[in-house]
Design a protein around this nucleic acid. Structure first.
Lengths: 205, 205
DNA sequence: GAAGAAGTTGAGGTCATGCTCAACTTCCTA
DNA sequence: TAGGAAGTTGAGCATGACCTCAACTTCTTC
């Protein structure tokens, strides 16, 4: 059975308000701020979204699709390395523009994915990485789980520098990418995290 | 006027307890946990350390000296690049061993430094970086404020992976250092943060 | 060893956030 | 358009952390 008309309107208002508030202040804002901004009572918020995660999911439901588009574009680029850097840069740009998405990226990189879009985004990201390795431009000892390091690093820099210099993350990303080129590679001291380990970390917030 | 004997003993107990609790759970633990562990009332804690920052300072007072020692050792190494990587690795190792110090590193890189030891640590760190650049091994466009990126990145990885794989940060650091070698350098898209900007970020938590 | 200075204590006030639920309102349907 | 289902409301309870202060204890000094 569908939602009643008023309920549907309230739901939309809540998601819109949450989108704005999350973008401004991150995923950990007090939820009554969201309710107030939506012009709705806190009870209605909890009625519609019993947990914060439900609300977060609703707000960022469409982002998986965006990631898919970015990855497809990256795979359409002739130069595999350019595709890889394009992918990373675009995702980082989304993070820099939205504190909520930045938080989300730090906590749940597409992984152990629920929706078909998430699965597809995950697969395409894998292919972006593998293709860049096959081309010889991305260092061969880089594996998918190492993307977590990239994400965490840039995420943290965005958090720290957003107020002072909103473009600073680009410089950090420059250093990071220079460390991922094949000619830059020196032996790594320890093996990669398993995908399972990364998944566990993400699940624990 | 000096502290009374019992007060001095309580102070020591508080600092010891705080050291242990911070190391285990980070700088943001509830302070009554510290008081409980010290076997002292919460009132005494506030009496001795009016703010959390006072307690943190007392706990980590000796660390500045340790950093100085590490930097001196680094500067004593013939190979400037080996000295630089040694310095970074040892500081990261300290962070990995102590969640409190890890938090501290993310928030206040030695900067706008209060004690003489801090000033000295800051100067030596500058020299470690400059020497590595002069040697031609560290990329010439790297500046001191870029150390903040390194610190934030490894800090975040340590936070995320400590429970799952306590050595994982070494792999991340491997990627980072490979991006800092001179031959790896590609032009950076934006200029560095100023030292003043980094200082402001640290001050705002 | 008496007196007062120094230090300790912990119950309790304050605040921010999460979350609930009984009374009320709106909507839909027959 | 009446009645009941669906949805809304917000005061209020719960929790947990911060911090205070008046009454109490311990130390030091003469």
């Amino acid at each position: 059975m569908a939602l009643r008309k008023d309920a549907q309107r309230n739901r939309e208002r809540l998601v819109d308000a949450a989108r704005a508030v999350f973008a401004e202040r991150g995923l950990d804002v007090a939820l009554d701020e969201v309710a107030r901004r939506a012009g709705v009572s806190i009870g209605t918020l909890y009625n519609r979204f019993p947990t914060r995660a439900d609300l977060v999911r609703a707000v960022f439901a469409d982002r998986a699709e965006t990631v898919v588009r970015i990855a497809e574009h990256a795979l359409g680029t002739d130069d595999a390395w350019a595709g890889f850097t394009h992918f990373v840069e675009q995702v980082c740009r989304m993070q820099a523009a939205d504190r909520g998405y930045n938080d989300l990226a730090a906590r749940s990189l597409p992984q152990a994915a629920p929706t078909p879009e998430h699965v597809r985004g995950y697969e395409l990201m894998t292919e972006v990485v593998e293709r860049a390795k096959r081309s010889g431009a991305l260092r061969p000892d880089f594996v998918l789980s190492d993307m977590a390091f990239v994400t965490w690093a840039i995420t943290r820099t965005i958090e720290a520098t957003a107020d002072v210099d909103p473009q600073a993350w680009r410089r950090h990303l420059g250093f990071v990418l220079d460390g991922l080129r094949a000619p830059a590679a020196h032996p790594l001291p320890v093996p990669a995290l398993t995908d399972e380990q990364v998944g566990r970390i993400m699940r624990d917030c």
